[in-house]
């Protein structure tokens, strides 16, 4: 049963929320997923399909009502540094400088003395040399997300969980940071789970793309991205894959701007031509 290649095993997980009026939301229903060691996997799907919920369950920030989450075969019970988490808005501590924010994990784990040189190393890695003493409000959104990533990575986590880390950034900063993430992933070989709204981002970065649907939130399909390591957004295969993912998302109930999905082509792809 046990598979040494699997880092995180999600088995039959349910998560239901009740709002203040008592209304029930099935944020996740019977989710099964195995995340492999060292892979970069992304979750994509319409708003409210439970992406954040699933990521929080893996982090141990939340617990499922049914099912099990295993990390290296032991149940996830509470948050821990071996599962680094980057929040959508970064959540840097405003009273700490860039350097202090990055060092937090070392201090919290009482290893700051031995591992102090790592701080500089990670600042260099994310390209923020010279900004060590800046406070979060003094740096740009893109820089803040770099700090948030470095802050999680300095603990050398088994998995890095990224919840739409680039969601609030402009297109150029986004691409820049995508390259940084890819570089980090290559260098550290950390397993990365990425939540995103951006199809190109998912294809550009991932080994696998998990497409989710809402109400109840569940996994709709998992697409293997079999592109060569050096990816080009204008490559034919890239474009074909993009179209495939967009169509799936469209069916999954996600609003896709019409210029991205050609309805005639969609019909052909789905083999519905005869039916019409």
């Amino acid at each position: 049963m046990s598979n040494p290649g699997i880092l995180i095993d999600i088995r039959g997980v349910d998560r239901v929320y009740y709002d203040t009026t008592g209304r029930k939301t099935e944020a996740l229903q019977n989710v099964n997923l195995q995340i492999r060691k060292g892979e970069l996997i992304s979750f994509i799907g319409p708003s409210g399909c439970g992406k954040t919920t699933l990521l929080r369950l893996i982090a141990g920030l939340d617990a499922p009502q049914a099912g099990q989450l295993l990390l290296n075969e032991s149940p996830v019970e509470k948050p821990g540094f071996e599962r680094g988490y980057v929040f959508q808005q970064g959540a840097l501590f405003p009273w700490k400088t860039v350097e202090e924010n990055i060092a937090i994990g070392l201090i919290a784990r009482n290893v700051y003395k031995e591992k102090k040189p790592l701080v500089k190393q990670y600042i260099d890695m994310i390209g923020l040399t010279g900004f060590e003493k800046a406070y979060p409000h003094e740096i740009s959104g893109g820089m803040a997300q770099r700090v948030a990533i470095a802050r999680a990575l300095i603990n050398e986590p088994k998995v890095l969980l990224l919840d739409e880390p680039l969601g609030a950034l402009d297109a150029f900063t986004r691409i820049d940071l995508q390259n940084t993430i890819r570089k980090i992933w290559k260098n550290t070989r950390t397993t990365i789970v990425l939540v995103t709204h951006d199809v190109d981002e998912a294809i550009y970065l991932s080994d696998r793309i998990v497409i989710m649907t809402a109400r109840p939130g569940k996994i709709n399909e998992i697409i293997e991205v079999k592109l060569k390591p050096e990816r080009d957004r204008n490559d034919d295969e890239f474009i074909i894959l993009r179209r495939r993912v967009l169509e799936k998302l469209h069916l999954a109930g996600m609003h896709i701007p019409s210029r991205l999905v050609d309805p005639v082509e969609l019909i052909n792809v789905l083999g519905l031509g005869e039916a019409i």
């Binding site: 982090a59 920030l61 948050p79 988490y85 929040f87 959540a91 937090i104 994990g105 919290a108 999680a152």
Partner: peptide, 9 residues
């Protein structure tokens, strides 16, 4: 939450 995922007690 951020602190907890960084190993804070």
């Amino acid at each position: 939450e951020a602190a907890k995922t960084l190993g804070a007690g």
